[in-house]
Simulated scan of single mutants.
Amino acid sequence: MTEWLVANAWVVWLAVFLLLAIIEMISLDLYFIMLGVGALGGVTVALLGGEFWLQIVAFSIVSLLMIMLVRPIALRHLRKDPEALRTNVDRLIGEDALVLEPTSRMNGRAKIGGETWSARSDDDAPLQPGTYGSVVRIEGATAYITLRTKMPGLD
């Protein structure tokens, strides 16, 4: 059994890679996937016929380089918060809202993104039906909107 493992070390390295990838999917901290790429370095050296100690050296060097050079760049990109990646109700903030019925600080309705929402005026001025507002915030199922000074699509 030991002879087979030494002769087919690439299988062991591939199993290590898969295990590290699974752990990364659970933890999501970008350490284990960097170690996994190091294990792929070990697979490469094993397939090229390198000795086991050389496979370990390749694993160590590739893993360290990935953690020191690639992980910080990946984390920077993951922590960006572009507006295109906003989800759920966050994406509605700043959207146009067509007022459907008189809207005050107490009640009203507006169409936002093709859906009818319960709406409230965010300022003291009531909004009349047919006017456009802009979504300021969402609390629960209620959108708070303010009057737009320009027509949507023209500014």
Rank of each mutant, 00 (worst) to 15 (best):
D124E: 15
P102H: 14
V16M: 15
T146W: 01
M151T: 10
A119K: 10
V6L: 11
E24H: 04
E24W: 06
M34A: 13
Y144A: 07
V16H: 06
L69N: 01
D123A: 15
L78Q: 14
M68G: 06
F32N: 14
R91Q: 07
H77P: 00
A97M: 03
P102A: 14
P152N: 02
P126T: 13
A110N: 03
L100Q: 06
E115H: 14
A97T: 05
V99F: 11
R91I: 03
P129C: 10
T116P: 00
T44V: 13
D96R: 08
E115D: 15
T142P: 02
V62T: 14
L14P: 00
L40S: 12
L100N: 02
A15M: 09
I112M: 03
V99R: 06
L154M: 12
T142R: 15
R148M: 01
Y31A: 08
G153M: 01
T2P: 01
Q55F: 05
E101N: 05
T142L: 07
A39R: 04
I56W: 11
E101D: 02
A84C: 02
A110W: 07
W4L: 13
E139M: 12
I112Q: 04
T149N: 15
S60C: 10
L75C: 08
A143M: 10
L14C: 05
T103G: 05
I61F: 08
I26S: 14
A84N: 09
A21Y: 01
S27Y: 02
K150C: 13
E51F: 09
R109V: 00
A143L: 09
N88S: 06
Q55I: 10
K80L: 14
K111L: 13
L127C: 10
M68E: 10
P126Y: 13
Q128M: 12
T131S: 15
R109M: 08
V57G: 09
A9Q: 07
I26R: 12
W13D: 05
D90P: 00
V135E: 01
L98F: 07
F52Y: 10
I145L: 03
T87M: 09
F59N: 09
L48R: 07
S27C: 09
H77V: 07
D124W: 02
L54Q: 15
D29V: 03
I67S: 03
G153R: 01
L54C: 13
A15Q: 04
V12Q: 12
H77Q: 11
L85D: 06
G113A: 13
L54P: 05
W10Y: 12
A9M: 07
L28Q: 12
R86S: 06
Q128V: 14
T87P: 00
I67Y: 02
R109K: 11
E115F: 07
W53I: 15
P129E: 10
A46F: 03
Y31I: 12
S134G: 00
L92A: 00
V43H: 03
S63I: 05
L85P: 00
L40H: 05
V57F: 12
D81P: 04
L40Y: 03
R86L: 14
E51R: 13
T131V: 10
W117L: 06
Y144V: 10
W53A: 12
M25K: 04
I145W: 02
W53Y: 09
P102S: 11
G36Q: 08
L48M: 08
Y31M: 09
R137Y: 04
D90H: 07
D29L: 10
F52S: 13
W4G: 06
I112W: 01
L47F: 12
Q128K: 13
R148T: 02
L100I: 06
V45D: 00
R137E: 15
R148I: 03
V62R: 04
